[in-house]
Design a protein around this nucleic acid. Structure first.
Length: 296
DNA sequence: AAGGGAGCCTGGCGGC
DNA sequence: TGCCGCCAGGCTCCCT
């Protein structure tokens, strides 16, 4: 499920149960996801109090009181669900029907929260997700993080920065925006949506939006604000729920209803007065949806 | 050296 | 109904 807004939504859903809770034990139902779990994964978590949850790009971060951070990535199909005991009174967490543990439930984190017991279950059919451990102080040096670009929400992302990142880039802007070393957290959906709003074709070479003096060309100017806006609105909507994929609290995100181009091949472009038709093309192995009439 | 493609996995869907 | 091929929100490695 996870681009940045979905991971942020997961974090917010898990926080009321996990923050301040103690991990009584961890069940690993297999020895690897995309990568093997670290040797000492379950022992390191066992007995630890969770001090806070965080997020960097599409990574979920779980801080423990022993200054270890658990790094979690949901890949393409990872999700969490929360199950609480009947008598639990954990604020902001509602009781959901206890479901059976299924074949793709790979990790179960058992929690003692001051207001009741709970368990956090990680499910991932395709197993592109992964988990790792790091000392909190070493996080930025970790191989997952050391080459990550700026967060797309927040002031670091500006048209000036985009111009700088795109200078002399021959790659299509679609690929540049998906490159986590430039901007960290964007994925296929939100890149398609942002480019449509900005009226920029995904095929356009990134470097062609930058002037000779390295300044953002007029067409590039609004893109930074548009990206920020798309991501913020998606977070507000609780992310996007494709194929009924649920958030950790059991709710569905609803941003998918606001898609203007993603998965809308052959539909009319929604831009007022455009009259174009949404196309699907493949760029570096991934679908790009765009309107050839108003995206240049 | 940057950019494109294959590979990692499983499940769901549409077409025949 | 059944089978087959295609597609999927990510990321890394390898080849050119």
């Amino acid at each position: 499920m996870p681009e940045l807004p979905e991971v942020e939504t997961v974090k917010r859903g898990l926080a009321p149960v996990m923050e301040g809770a103690r991990i009584s034990h961890v069940e690993l139902r297999r020895k690897n996801l995309r990568f093997p779990f670290p040797e000492n994964f379950d022992e390191t978590l066992k007995g630890q109090k969770i001090t806070s949850l965080g997020r960097r790009a599409k990574y979920l971060l779980v801080d423990l009181e022993n200054d270890v951070t658990v790094i979690m990535h949901l890949g393409m199909s990872g999700s969490f669900r929360i199950e609480v005991d009947d008598n639990s009174q954990i604020p902001g967490v509602f009781h959901h029907d206890r479901s059976k543990i299924s074949a793709h439930d790979h990790v179960i984190i058992h929690l003692d929260h001051p207001k009741g017991r709970a368990r956090i279950i990680y499910n991932d059919p395709r197993r592109f997700g992964f988990m790792d451990l790091t000392a909190r102080s070493q996080l930025e040096e970790h191989s997952f993080f050391k080459n990550l670009g700026v967060e797309p929400v927040g002031n670091a992302l500006s048209s000036q920065l985009l111009a700088q990142l795109f200078t002399n880039k021959a790659a299509p802007i679609k690929a540049a925006l998906l490159d986590q070393r430039l901007i960290a957290g964007l994925g296929n959906i939100y890149v398609c949506e942002a480019l449509h709003q900005a009226g920029i074709s995904p095929i356009r070479k990134a470097g062609s939006l930058v002037g000779k003096a390295g300044q953002p060309l007029k067409q590039l100017m609004p893109l930074a604000d548009i990206i920020r806006d798309v991501i913020r609105k998606a977070i507000e909507a609780g992310g996007s729920s494709l194929r009924d994929h649920r958030q950790a609290d059991g709710n569905l995100g609803y941003f998918q209803h606001q898609f203007k181009v993603y998965d809308r091949e052959d539909e009319a472009c929604s831009k007022p007065g455009c009259g174009g038709t949404i196309s699907r093309i493949v760029q570096s192995g991934r679908s790009s949806f765009y309107c050839p009439k108003c995206q240049k």
